[in-house]
C-alpha cells in the first residue's frame, strides 16, 4: 500500500514511545551504567571502562553457556519446524474437527512457563511420573537429575511439547490461504504429493514460517523458567543456558558489573540475528507486493 508522507504521525506514536522509554530505555541505561563501573558496596561506583566486557568475552563460563544455548536452539528448531509443518499438513481443513484440533493444540501455549516445567518435572520422575515410571518399567535407566543426556532429552522434549503447536498453527494459517484452484491446477498437471508441497505449499508458507522461526529463535534463546524448574541448570552446568547463567550471576551472586556486560553482549547477539531475519522478512513482503 502506498503510504502518505506525514510527520504528524509521530503524535500517534508518542504514547508508545513514552511507555517504552519508561519500561525499556531507563532499565537498559541502568545496565549500561553497571557494565562500565565497579563497586565495593555502599553505592560507591567508579569507572571501570571496558574491563568487564573483556572479562566476559574471555570467560569460559559464558562461552560454554553460549555453546549450550546455540546447541539447544539449533536442536529445537530442527525438530519443531519440520514437525510443525508435518502436523499442519495433516490437520483437518475445516469443520468441527478443525476447531477441535486447534483448541487442543493451542492448549500448551497458554500454560504458565513454570507450570510447564512442573508438569514435565512430575511426568519424568521415576517414582510418581508416568514417563519416568514407564521407562523404568521397560528397563531404561532414565534419570534427568543425574544424567546429562537424560536432562537434555527431557528439556528438549518439553520444548517440543510446548512450542511445536506454534509452528503448526502458523503453517496451518499459511496453508489455509492457498486457493483451491492451485490444487486443481496441480492435479491437471499430474503433480505428485511432493511436487505440490515443494512448489505450492512451501512457497505459500514461507512468510509465516519465517515468523515462526523468528519467534522460536528469540524465545528459545531467552528460555529460563522451564529448564530451571525441571533441572535447575544441572546436572552440574549441563543445562545452564544463557538466561539461567545470567540470573545466577546477577541475582544469585550480585556480580553486577560482569552480569551487566554479559547482558549487553547477550542482547546484541539476539538483536543481530533477529535483524537478519527481520530484513529477509520485510524484503519478502515487498516482493510479494503486500
Amino acid at each position: 500500500m502506498d503510504k502518505t508522507q506525514n510527520n504528524k504521525a509521530w503524535f500517534l506514536v508518542l504514547p508508545v514511545l513514552a511507555l517504552v522509554a519508561f519500561s525499556a530505555v531507563i532499565p537498559l541505561m541502568t545496565v549500561v551504567n553497571y557494565s562500565l563501573q565497579d563497586t565495593f558496596g555502599n553505592n560507591e561506583f567508579f569507572w571501570a571502562g571496558l574491563e568487564w566486557f573483556e572479562d566476559v568475552l574471555d570467560s569460559d563460563r559464558i562461552k560454554d553457556a553460549l555453546g549450550r544455548q546455540i546447541l539447544f536452539t539449533g536442536i529445537i528448531l530442527a525438530i519443531e519446524v519440520p514437525l510443525g509443518i508435518f502436523v499442519a499438513l495433516n490437520m483437518p481443513k475445516k469443520g468441527f474437527w478443525a476447531s477441535f484440533c486447534l483448541v487442543l493444540m493451542a492448549l500448551p501455549l497458554l500454560i504458565p512457563f513454570n507450570v510447564v516445567g512442573t508438569i514435565w518435572q512430575i511426568f519424568g520422575r521415576v517414582d510418581i511420573g508416568l514417563l519416568g515410571h514407564t521407562l523404568a518399567a521397560m528397563g531404561v535407566d532414565y534419570n534427568y537429575t543425574n544424567d546429562v543426556f537424560d536432562a537434555w532429552a527431557t528439556v528438549i522434549i518439553m520444548d517440543v511439547w510446548h512450542w511445536t503447536s506454534l509452528v503448526a498453527l502458523l503453517s496451518y494459517a499459511g496453508l489455509q490461504s492457498i486457493p483451491e484452484a492451485y490444487y486443481q491446477a496441480a492435479k491437471i498437471d499430474q503433480a505428485g504429493r511432493l511436487a505440490v508441497f515443494r512448489y505450492i505449499e512451501l512457497p505459500k508458507m514461507q512468510g509465516v514460517l519465517l515468523i515462526a522461526i523468528l519467534l522460536r529463535f528469540m524465545d528459545s534463546f531467552m528460555i529460563y523458567t522451564e529448564p530451571f524448574v525441571v533441572t535447575g541448570g544441572g546436572p552440574g552446568n549441563a543445562t545452564t543456558f544463557l538466561s539461567i547463567d545470567l540470573v545466577k550471576q546477577a541475582i544469585g551472586q550480585f556480580d553486577l558489573g560482569p552480569a551487566a556486560a554479559f547482558s549487553l553482549i547477550y542482547f546484541l547477539v539476539i538483536l543481530l540475528i533477529s535483524w537478519v531475519f527481520y530484513t529477509v522478512m520485510t524484503n519478502l513482503d515487498k516482493r510479494d507486493g503486500v
Binding site: W10, A24, L28, L246
Partner: peptide
C-alpha cells in the same frame, strides 16, 4: 498509514524490545 521520519527504524526498535531477554531486565 503514514510514512514519517524514522518510521522504519522506530518499528524495528520497538520489535527489539520483544527480543530483549527478561533475565536482562
Amino acid at each position: 498509514r503514514y510514512r514519517f521520519m524514522g518510521d522504519k527504524h522506530l518499528f524495528f526498535w520497538l520489535l527489539t524490545n520483544r527480543m530483549a531477554p527478561p533475565a536482562v531486565f
